[in-house]
């Protein structure tokens, strides 16, 4: 079994208004050294696949198809093999 940790963020060209609001909130808490905040989404997905390459291909396909909106978002992921008893 494989575990994919998928990170979704806006493309750099897309303004992240929620990140901006969080940044100004951090400044109000006196963390004035904070330069930027980017808010994204995080998914942990476990899947069965015959090997790592097959799993990677599937993750890239379904991330483009559903997890992100390709017009404005992008993703990165980390993939590792886990034992099926691991929870």
């Amino acid at each position: 079994m494989f575990l994919a940790k998928i990170y979704v963020t806006y493309k750099p060209s897309i303004l992240d208004p929620q990140g901006e609001v969080i940044k100004s909130a951090l400044h109000r808490l006196d963390y004035t050294d904070v330069n930027s905040v980017m808010q994204g989404k995080y998914f942990e997905i476990k899947l069965e696949a015959k090997d790592q390459r097959t799993a990677a291909k599937e993750i890239e396909e379904f991330s483009d198809e559903l997890l992100i909106n390709v017009n404005m978002e992008t993703f990165t992921y980390k993939l590792s093999e886990i034992s099926s008893v691991e929870e």
């Binding site: 806006y10 897309i14 303004l15 208004p17 929620q18 901006e20 609001v21 909106n69 017009n71 404005m72």
Partner: peptide, 17 residues
């Protein structure tokens, strides 16, 4: 309709959150 691909583009969060 944009998510379904029946219209082009996408709707982002408002520029001022």
């Amino acid at each position: 309709l944009t998510e379904a691909g029946l219209l082009p583009g996408a709707l982002r969060m408002n520029a001022k959150a």
